[in-house]
Design a protein around this nucleic acid. Structure first.
Lengths: 248, 248
DNA sequence: AATATTGGTTGACGTGGATCAATGGGGGAT
DNA sequence: ATCCCCCATTGATCCACGTCAACCAATATT
């Protein structure tokens, strides 16, 4: 899933500037002109590497920065006192992490790397400062937050109104679409999360996820080999979601 | 649930200024100084009345404003093509509606009044403009959006990891807390939504909601008379959520 | 006041997904 | 390269919640 920069590495080592980043089309600076891009180049203070299974931040940590994923992928989750975990999302390159922290100035969930990853650290104070000056940054940031809200509503729909196989179908189509946006195959990809994490995200037990995968395989909708997925009949998956046989 | 303005009505009819509004402590201008309040008085262009069962906006409507609830209450929902409805939230006075629209410049859900209500219309372009000038407005707006994200994660936890009675307990405690914040009784309140709407929000069928209410009543946790609710043992309700007997 | 309509409660029964359990593989660690 | 533990799969059984249905209460309509 690692993306390599297509621009030449500059002399002074690793440049952290957004203007030099090939993820610009997926990330916060989406749609900005070169001029605007130059103005926000100071936004990313540093990069930070996070090893697989390590936390980028934990619930309760003081909030002072948001993060853009430069390479790798993450999950976010919330924990109940009794140990129950709810995965609230999976994030890939170009997506933002940490928006939950603005509300109370401390993070409300955990962010864990699903593989060795790297993020751009965006000091929140600097983001507010710059987005008062750069209109396009302000608007783009608002869009990112709003998109997160819309995405969450979609997950609620999944969790509240869909059956197990519908949930998994929606999940797979969503992953496929996001891989496509990153220039990878829509039909063939590698999941970085376990069946248990998928299950937690979809409100299902890992056995149910596994069985749904097997069923999709039997019916020729997808090819499943552990974490390697091949979408064989995307149309049938879409159909499954909208035309569920059971009235709910 | 109707709140009356405690400030005198000004001569020139209905003043829409935030500085004149008694909901300032719950709403977007929370925590602002008088100076700042005066600067954002132009934010609210108009008020709009919405009758019970009517839409404030629908999914697909072009987005140009967000709304602050002045009086009354709303639900937001998303519909699947096959007719399934997922209620994504219930909103009361001082809370914001329409944030979902920023992302694509068109609304992604429906907002329906649960009773005759009134909202303040905040032109989004003006909000962006003013929040470039007024730092506290900028920050407060970001907090409002972030809070929505955190709330949504809480709902995912509900839907993905909790049992029916836990969900209802969490819902009741949440309602109680929000009524308290508005100066109403924490122990006794009137729900404006039907069992079916509660069920949709909690990912349950209306019969299951009804049975859970009855069970809480039997056990002396709450008094239930249709939509009128009395919380009799809040501690027991809290306990129910964190210490579920079933390991999930 | 009479009637229609919508919303809520309760019972009987069915089922989708959880739980419990056993068995194999793959990939990370060293 | 090898080991071992985590992860995935699959089967058998169970149960929480959904479904179907009847009935009643509350509120709106005339």
């Amino acid at each position: 899933m690692e993306l390599k920069a297509t621009v030449p590495i500059t002399m002074n080592g690793l440049k952290t500037a957004c203007s030099q980043c090939n993820l610009v089309e997926l990330c916060l600076p989406f749609g900005m002109s070169d001029d605007e891009l130059n103005r926000i180049d100071e936004l990313v203070g540093a990069r930070r590497k996070v090893k697989r299974q390590q936390n980028l931040y934990r619930a309760g940590d003081p909030f002072d920065a948001i993060y853009a994923i430069r390479a790798g992928s993450f999950k976010t989750d919330v924990l109940l006192e009794d140990g129950r975990e709810q995965v609230t999302g999976f994030q890939m390159t170009g997506e933002m992490l940490g928006l939950d922290g603005i509300s109370t100035a401390s993070h409300s969930c955990n962010a864990v790397a699903l593989e060795d990853s790297e993020v751009c650290v965006i000091a929140y104070s600097k983001l507010e400062e710059l987005s008062r000056e750069v209109e396009s940054l302000q608007h783009q940031f608002h869009k990112v937050m709003s998109r997160e809200i819309v995405r969450d509503h979609g997950v609620m729909m999944l969790l509240g109104s869909m059956r197990a196989e519908e949930r998994l179908a929606a999940f797979l189509l969503n992953m496929s679409q996001r891989f496509t946006a990153r220039g990878f195959s829509a039909a063939e990809f590698h999941l970085r999360m376990t069946r248990e994490e998928i299950g937690s995200y979809l409100g299902l037990k890992l056995e149910t996820v596994s069985r749904a995968f097997s069923r999709f395989q039997e019916e020729g909708l997808v090819g499943v080999q552990q974490k390697h997925i091949r979408i064989l009949d995307a149309a049938a998956l879409k159909n499954l979601i909208q035309h569920s046989h059971v009235a709910r």
